[in-house]
């Protein structure tokens, strides 16, 4: 019987032996790499956790609104706009339907003005180039969360006619989960650093926010605020 004839004669050795060598090398490399790289695995995971880098108009956004019933011109709003606040309907919002950063989730119109634009969640530059943005900081939220809602846009683009908003005008926000109405109760011109200009502890209310003066060149230090009280719209369950 020939000894070791598999290695010396069998053609399958050209497959089996390199495969075994490769596995053995991979195992050794994996063990050594794990020993030396384990302190850095957290950082490596963070750096490689996102989606592939690409630049789109509002990168990483979802359009939650365009296919919703509220977006269709002929569709009736989920809640009929009314100036008389009644008991609020409560709705459940599934996790995947909750607006995330840069998601387009609605449309905002201000009665008596030319303000009518898409509404996004978040306020970075890509959002403000595409429409109005919803401030996502502590204490603020989106319609239905029973808190203060800050919506901002540039004074030279989507909110250029916000100055025409009069007391009593209705502000309609159509979202993919419901329609909301607010009424303008006041306007103000404040410094951009004035934190007393708004109250984050109130029940649901809306503040429209843009730079001032409207025809100024350059970055100004003043802001134009339009304060609106809640009129109607469903409350999202779980937010009190």
């Amino acid at each position: 019987m020939k000894k070791n004839s598999f290695f010396r004669r069998n053609p399958w050795a050209f497959v089996a032996v390199p495969a075994a060598f490769a596995l053995l090398t991979a195992a050794i490399v994996a063990i050594v790499a794990y020993i030396y790289l384990s302190p850095y695995l957290g950082i490596i995971g963070q750096v490689t956790s996102g989606s592939a880098a690409s630049i789109v108009e509002v990168s990483g956004s979802r359009d939650l609104f365009s296919e919703s019933p509220s977006a269709k011109p002929t569709s009736k709003p989920t809640v009929k706009p009314s100036e008389t606040p009644g008991p609020r309907e409560e709705i459940d919002l599934e996790d995947e339907a909750v607006p995330q950063d840069k998601d387009k989730y609605g449309k905002i119109t201000v009665e008596g003005t030319e303000v009518s634009c898409d509404l996004y969640y978040g306020t970075d530059n890509s959002v403000l180039n595409a429409g109005a943005g919803t401030y996502e900081g502590f204490g603020a939220g989106f319609p239905g969360q029973d808190c203060s809602i800050f919506i901002m846009a540039h004074n030279n683009t989507f909110f250029s006619d916000l100055k025409s908003a009069k007391k009593g005008a209705l502000v309609t926000i159509n979202t993919h989960y419901g329609d909301y109405v607010y009424k303008v109760v006041d306007t103000a011109i404040v410094e951009n650093t004035d934190s007393t200009a708004y109250d984050l502890t109130r029940d649901e209310n809306l503040i429209l926010y843009t730079c001032y003066p409207f025809d100024a060149l350059g970055f100004t230090s003043q802001r134009y605020l339009v304060y609106c009280d809640f009129v109607s719209g469903p409350k999202i369950s779980g937010y009190d």
Binding site: I55, N156, L217
Partner: peptide, 20 residues
């Protein structure tokens, strides 16, 4: 191209906020 696209987003926003 990617850097220019990022700059374009920012500069478009600055322009919208500054009247240019």
């Amino acid at each position: 191209e990617e850097a220019y696209a990022l700059l374009s987003i920012n500069y478009e926003s600055y322009a919208g906020a500054s009247g240019f």
